[in-house]
Nucleic acid binder design. Structure first.
Lengths: 138, 138
DNA sequence: TTATTTCACTTGCTATTTGCAAGTAATATA
DNA sequence: TATATTACTTGCAAATAGCAAGTGAAATAA
């Protein structure tokens, strides 16, 4: 598993030690904006993460307290992944990536999200954070 | 050089295609918060980037229009790297990484920056963006 | 004017990480 | 009881990162 090697005590550096790869924040994006919570749902994303990388990242995120893993309510053979407060607090980072990509790169945003962000960034962040908190209870 | 392979049209994904590795945002951090602008200055950071990786990332950042490379004023054998507006617009992302790392990980922040952020995130972002814009003129 | 140093890289090699395809084990459904 | 689904693991090839040494142009020192 991707273990935490801290390169320095700088918060940018240490945050990147945890989140700074090509896949971790996409998993969190799927949880925040798509409401995904299972391995199979993460596999369906259009970016096509490899199975071993997904398993590795989910284990790392769990070990770092960013998400929790529990047996699913409907099936004993499934697991449900839910964001912790530490995970919910990554939402502003993801939103800033959305805004930068939308402004400077060739991307297509979900129009609902775009409208919410245009109406007010902080309100949109608050909405998705409250939403994630509700899901973390069930 | 690290070339841009776009995995999807999602802005989070595409932003990560550009910025989502262990080193790119640290180079931008050094430019924004430390006022660094030369290869030698980037090499001095405590995270110890490898020379070939630094050269690669600077070339990629230039080719993506995030920074510009010009011959230094004082010496013809040196280059000066400066942020473009596209680069200056990454500051909110870096600031969110500072905030998340400070809250959830074992880090040590520059007390000046900490105070500025506590006094108001948007004001602090605005200050560093204005600062970067000034440097980009000279 | 020549010698040495500085600066910004490049090169070559090894180690680590990622990507792909196939396999497995525990349920769940037919 | 047989087939399918789910969440992985395993093995290997390809890509990326890390380390040490080397290079060439320009600046400084003798």
């Amino acid at each position: 598993m991707k273990e935490l090697k801290q390169r320095s005590t700088c918060p940018v550096s240490t945050s990147l030690d945890v989140l700074g790869d090509k896949w971790t924040l996409l998993i969190l994006r799927d949880m925040v904006f798509e409401g995904k919570s299972t391995y199979g749902q993460f596999m369906q994303s259009e970016e096509k993460i490899a199975t071993n990388v997904l398993a590795d990242r989910l284990a790392a995120l769990e070990s770092q307290g960013i998400l929790t893993k529990t047996v699913a309510e409907d099936k004993k053979s499934k697991f449900t992944y839910r964001l912790t407060e530490k995970g919910i607090d990554t939402i502003p980072i993801i939103v800033e990536l959305v805004l930068w990509g939308t402004k400077h790169l060739a991307t297509v945003v979900n129009p609902v999200l775009l409208e919410e962000l245009q109406a007010g960034k902080d309100a949109a962040i608050g909405k998705y954070q409250r939403n994630a908190r509700e899901n973390s209870l069930s």
